[in-house]
Computed example of a mutant assay.
Amino acid sequence: MKYLFLLGAIMAEIAGAIATRQSNGFSKFWPSCIAVLGVVGAYFLLSLSLKNGMPLGVAYGIWAALGITLLALFGAFFFNEPLSVIQVAGIILIVGGVLALELGKTE
């Protein structure tokens, strides 16, 4: 269940970030509402993941890595934002670091 809550937190954060981009500096009502609800929802779902036994460092690492990766890909494919080879390498390093956190934990 803790991973399901974490996945929900990641999706809510991604929705909030995309809506923030679409809000035009919070001058558009609906994208601004979605942005705020996405961020608040993300932290609420993260808290449920932590309450269900997910270690904070692992949860935040997974959240950050997947959020960065998915948002970078979304930006590249839907907003035509460029991704350089160095940026792609950075994303790979981030994901590798999170895998090291997850695989290296002791329970």
Rank of each mutant, 00 (worst) to 15 (best):
M1G: 13
M1N: 09
M1Q: 10
K2W: 15
Y3F: 14
Y3H: 15
L4Q: 13
F5V: 03
L6H: 07
L6N: 11
L7R: 03
A9K: 04
I10Y: 02
A12H: 05
A12R: 02
I14R: 06
G16N: 05
A17G: 09
A17R: 02
I18K: 06
A19W: 06
Q22F: 11
S23D: 07
S23F: 01
G25W: 03
F26Y: 14
F26I: 11
S27L: 05
P31S: 05
P31N: 11
S32N: 08
C33H: 05
A35N: 08
A35Q: 07
A35S: 15
A35D: 08
V36W: 08
L37W: 12
G38A: 06
V39Q: 06
A42H: 04
A42N: 08
Y43Q: 15
Y43H: 12
Y43G: 06
Y43D: 05
Y43A: 02
Y43I: 14
F44E: 02
L45I: 05
L45P: 00
L46E: 02
S49Y: 13
G53W: 04
L56M: 12
G57H: 09
V58D: 03
V58W: 01
A59C: 08
Y60H: 05
Y60Q: 05
G61I: 09
I62Q: 02
I62H: 00
W63M: 11
A64F: 11
I68T: 14
I68K: 06
L70C: 10
L70M: 11
A72D: 15
A72R: 13
G75I: 02
A76R: 13
A76Y: 14
A76V: 03
A76E: 01
A76S: 14
F78I: 10
F78W: 09
E81T: 12
E81R: 02
P82G: 14
L83M: 12
L83F: 08
S84P: 01
Q87Y: 07
A89G: 09
L93M: 15
L93G: 03
G96L: 05
G96Q: 05
G96A: 09
G97S: 07
G97V: 15
G97H: 07
V98T: 12
L99A: 12
L99D: 00
A100G: 03
L101C: 04
L101I: 15
